[in-house]
């Protein structure tokens, strides 16, 4: 409580806002570009150099559009949902270490903070689905909730495996513990399980049940337009960033690397994961919800549990 420094907090929040918006612009561009190239197209080419400002143009268009709430929608929930979805991001970004000193808020429980707040995204999706009085929206929200139950336990077990290896919940300590060798090499199974889990967590294809375009129009954000829609968009890409940053810290040694400055290494590693997720999306077809539940309960859970037990036993010896 003694270390409240107003200036530090304001600068960090401004920095986080910058990261959230810049990351969304870049990742959406990267996604469209990758999608294009993987389908032998060019992707966006018109606005800016190779279309890099396309997302900005789309964003300006979205902001200028009207938000229309359906007649029987629960207006309070309808407006609240995108806020619930986006706001936790600003807190979840605080303990992420871009270098050993470059982080908004040093805390012993950084990993828990990020994971706990990552869960609130689902709440936003559920409220959006429920509030918009639309059967597709409701189905999308329900699916998101079913999904969270299936992947959260393997995710937590994987995280716990890393925590007992590093002996700390602090993201900085975990990254420093991998000074010699990355945990991705010591814990390959945990690494794979975590990658599957972050795809599940961020509701991305092949697990984008909540917004399955071919079945549910747009799922939970069917009724959203304008600024509210772009807030969901921002939230989705920011959660991708946070999940990838967590993966970087836990498995790829965080900011550590030769030659380049620490924050650049960190961002490069994060974007490696982001690219991986984009690559998944444009390669794999969407799974059915029962297949996803099977994967969560019958594959990821036993594997992560056994991996956790083995790690614990090995560490105890």
């Amino acid at each position: 409580m003694k270390d409240i420094n107003l200036l530090h907090i304001i600068i960090s929040l401004l920095g986080i806002m910058g990261i959230v918006s810049l990351n969304a612009v870049l990742v959406v561009w990267l996604e469209r570009k990758t999608a294009g190239r993987m389908q032998f197209r060019h992707g966006p080419m018109e606005v800016g150099f190779h279309g890099i400002l396309q997302t900005l143009a789309d964003g300006i268009k979205l902001v200028s559009k009207q938000l229309v709430a359906p007649n029987h929608a629960d207006t309070a929930l309808f407006i609240l949902a995108p806020v619930v979805s986006l706001v936790p991001i600003f807190v979840a970004m605080m303990p992420i270490p871009f270098s050993s000193t470059m982080l908004a808020h040093e805390t012993d429980t950084g990993l828990l903070l990020v994971i706990a707040l990552g869960l609130l995204n689902t709440l936003g999706i559920l409220l959006a689905g429920w509030g918009s009085d639309n059967k597709y929206g409701l189905l999308g929200g329900t699916r998101a909730v079913g999904q969270i139950l299936a992947y959260k336990i393997p995710l937590l077990l994987t995280v716990l495996t890393i925590v007992i290896m590093a002996g700390s919940f602090s993201l900085r300590e975990i990254a420093l513990a991998q000074h010699g060798i990355w945990y991705a090499f010591i814990q390959p199974i945990a690494f794979l399980v975590y990658i599957v889990c972050i795809v599940l967590e961020t509701n991305r294809s092949p697990f984008d049940m909540a917004e399955a375009e071919s079945e549910l129009v747009a799922g939970f954000h069917t009724e959203y337009s304008g600024m509210a829609f772009s807030m969901f968009f921002l939230a989705e890409y920011s959660y991708m960033f946070v999940a990838s940053a967590l993966a970087t810290v836990m498995f790829l040694g965080g900011w550590q690397g030769p030659f380049l400055p620490a924050p650049i290494w960190f961002v490069l590693k994060v974007y490696f994961f982001l690219f991986l997720m984009i690559w998944f999306r444009w390669t794999f077809p969407r799974v059915r919800i029962d297949q996803m539940l099977m994967l969560g309960w019958k594959v990821l859970l036993p594997i992560s549990l056994i991996n956790f037990l083995i790690t614990a036993v090995v560490l105890a010896l």
């Binding site: 805390t107 012993d108 828990l112 706990a116 869960l119 609130l120 689902t122 709440l123 559920l126 909730v145």
Partner: peptide, 17 residues
């Protein structure tokens, strides 16, 4: 803060969901 985060994770994240 540890208990606080556990509260968010377990009650909001798991029980409420």
């Amino acid at each position: 803060p540890f208990i606080a985060l556990m509260q968010v994770m377990i009650y909001v994240g798991a029980v409420c969901v």
